[in-house]
């Protein structure tokens, strides 16, 4: 049976890995190629790169980093950040990305989802959704002011859209997304655990895989996201970059709790 995936995430700015809290206060966390290779060797099931600088002047830097990373890892690589046109997708795939994550541009122009899925197939397309819980919101109904409980934000979390995150996830699934990368902005970098209500509602509401993101601080948080939240994959950054836990420790813990994972030593040295 399919294993739940563990995905270290590298937020990349100016060609370096950085990590912030709730999308601000960035600090340097290393060289992306080295980090990705270490995680891949250590049993990560995929690697995700989010270019949070994402200015078009820096595109060549990112493409170079993607190309060197793709050469250094033996697992799928997802790259996102600043993807606004099909040409951006083509450049990233040519540089060696296996999947491309689209966020703000998909909100601005949902037809982009259909265009990308139509050209390269839905398996290359991850739609990243950054959601923030609105004050007074209650999952059973609408928010206090009649707006959505979970609102979609774009532009690195700076811009509210008024869109209901759950409905938006269902829309992108229908339009051709192959997977949803769901980040709770409230939890991002806090180490307080995934927003399980958000994760569970989206995971149950769409028929495509959902990657939970934002908030992991303990091993139990990851188990909760996968089991209670119903996510297909768990993405985390700080715990790996700060050396709090290794991928092997995460997988060892999950396996001990009965969660199906790919063993970290699987296939090592296997030869035909």
């Amino acid at each position: 049976m399919l294993a739940r995936r563990i995905i270290p995430c590298l937020d990349v700015k100016h060609g370096r890995v950085v990590k912030g809290v709730q999308f601000v206060g960035l600090r340097d966390a290393g060289d992306p190629v080295e980090c990705a290779a270490r995680y891949s060797e250590g049993g990560a099931d995929e690697i995700t790169f989010l270019d949070i600088g994402a200015s078009h002047e820096e595109r060549p830097i990112l493409l170079d980093v993607v190309s060197r990373t793709a050469a250094a890892v033996g697992v799928p690589l997802t790259v996102g950040g600043g993807v606004t046109r099909p040409a951006d997708v083509r450049d990233l795939l040519n540089a060696g990305a296996d999947k491309v994550a689209v966020n703000s541009a998909a909100v601005r122009d949902p037809a982009l989802i259909e265009e990308i899925a139509g050209t390269w197939g839905r398996q290359v397309l991850v739609v990243a959704v950054d959601a923030r819980r609105r004050p007074g919101g209650d999952a059973a109904g609408r928010g206090a002011d009649g707006g959505p409980v979970f609102e979609v934000f774009t532009h690195g979390g700076r811009r509210g859209t008024g869109l209901d995150a759950i409905a938006w996830c269902q829309t992108v699934a229908k339009l051709g997304a192959g997977e949803i990368l769901l980040t709770s902005m409230d939890r991002d970098g806090t180490c307080n655990g995934y927003d399980l209500e958000l994760t569970r509602t989206v995971a149950d509401g769409v028929s495509i895989p959902v990657v939970a993101s934002g908030g992991v601080g303990t091993l139990e948080h990851i188990r909760e996201g996968l089991v209670d939240g119903g996510a297909d994959a768990a993405l985390a950054a700080s715990i790996f970059h700060d050396g709090v836990f290794s991928v092997a420790e995460v997988k060892g813990y999950l396996a001990s709790k009965g969660v199906r994972v790919r063993p970290v030593n699987e296939g090592r040295g296997a030869d035909g």
Partner: peptide, 29 residues
Amino acid sequence: LKVPHMGWNVVQGDQAPFDEGGWFYFVHS
């Protein structure tokens, strides 16, 4: 179960190269 079937799964068979069983990456509908 979600579609696409995306991620790592075990492939098994009676003959080489799958007689040992092993994990491979899938993404397909």
